[in-house]
Amino acid sequence: MPNARVLRDIKARHGVNANEVLRRAYLYVARNQTLPAQVRFQAQLQLNTFGRYTRPTTVKNRCIETGRGRGVISEFGLTRFQFRLKALAKELPGVHKASW
């Protein structure tokens, strides 16, 4: 069972996915300088009505294994310590401890 922060992150991910197209449409209108200012302003107001978990910036890549939010090596989705453990256990293809 993932911890609460991971569950929240999953919720945010699904919210972003569900609202992405609509948000993009509003963003296009709001940022388009060729449209009248009134229309752009209304689009910006609509953008502000979206919930917290619909914005892509609320999504954070957390550790797949432990749910830790810091020190995540993005290529593997693991924190540095989990990365070390898995690498030493030879569970990451192509990763081995440096020695020369």
């Binding site: 069972m1 993932p2 991971v6 992150d9 999953i10 991910r13 699904h14 972003v16 996915n17 569900a18 992405e20 197209v21 993009r24 963003l27 296009y28 209108v29 709001a30 940022r31 388009n32 300088q33 060729t34 892509p56 999504v59 890549n61 797949i64 989705g77």
Partner: peptide
């Protein structure tokens, strides 16, 4: 160089890959 907002339409949708980040866990 007027801002037309085209970049918001041109950019790929990031949602589908976002929801695939955590591997499915069979409980």
């Amino acid at each position: 160089s007027v801002r037309t907002g085209a970049k918001y339409l041109r950019a790929r949708l990031r949602g589908p890959s976002m929801i695939r980040y955590y591997p499915d866990e069979l409980t």
